[in-house]
Amino acid sequence: MKIVVCAKFVPDATADRRFRSEDNTVDRAGVDGLLSELDEYAVEAALTVKENGDAEVTVLTVGPEQAADAVKKGLQMGADAGVHVIDDAIHGSDAVATSLILAKALSKLEADLVVFGMGSTDGGMGVVPAMVAERLGLPAVTLGSEVTVDGTTVKIRRDGDLASDTVEGTLPLVLSVSDQANEPRYPSFKGIMAAKKKPVETWSLADLELSGDQVGQAAAWTEVVEVTARPPRTAGTIVADEDGSGAAQLVEFLSTNKFL
């Protein structure tokens, strides 16, 4: 079985994240990036399938030069190979264009099982798995909190607020997993040392028979018109209970602000 994990390189959420002033896209050069934490669950899910059967795991990323780090992390965790789609024309692509690039690359890779995380930690739209499935004409089994692969059957548990669904599909299909699905492994020392020797291919848009005008910021269906930084944190109200009226003050505060 050929498993492909779609992994995104995102700015480190613990760093100071910014947008570029010239085109209102995420500043990827100015901050350290890494494999999106939510995609680590996807890598783990793929590696678990591999350990329980015969499979080859490829990590696929679309992104600028530093995005190679996301592939590398997947390889260190235990994936077998990597593909990095890189092209200047991709800059500013929206989810629709991203799904187009991924779908082309996945066809080329002849993936039986495509695994996504539940969303990226930067864009956070969580729509790409469904879009890719639509483009490939494959079933999408999404937001799995528990995943079992038995032969060609993929079964997930999807937890909602009121109920948990059990959803089943047959390979080939697109799977996305939630952050409840597993506990992503740390790269072992052997994994770290072996990663360097694993094959990573670099593809351009031309390799995927795509042209620059199909993707990128100009082709995006939406435009970010304005970016405003989050206002700095202001000091909260401190209710000092000096005369026993603290509870009343607290209730007053909560009701005036319509918290109650």
Partner: peptide, 14 residues
């Protein structure tokens, strides 16, 4: 080296 940086990061996370 890249490997040592990766080792540092992985151990730190653990």
């Amino acid at each position: 080296t890249e490997e040592r940086r990766a080792l540092r990061a992985a151990v730190s996370e653990l």
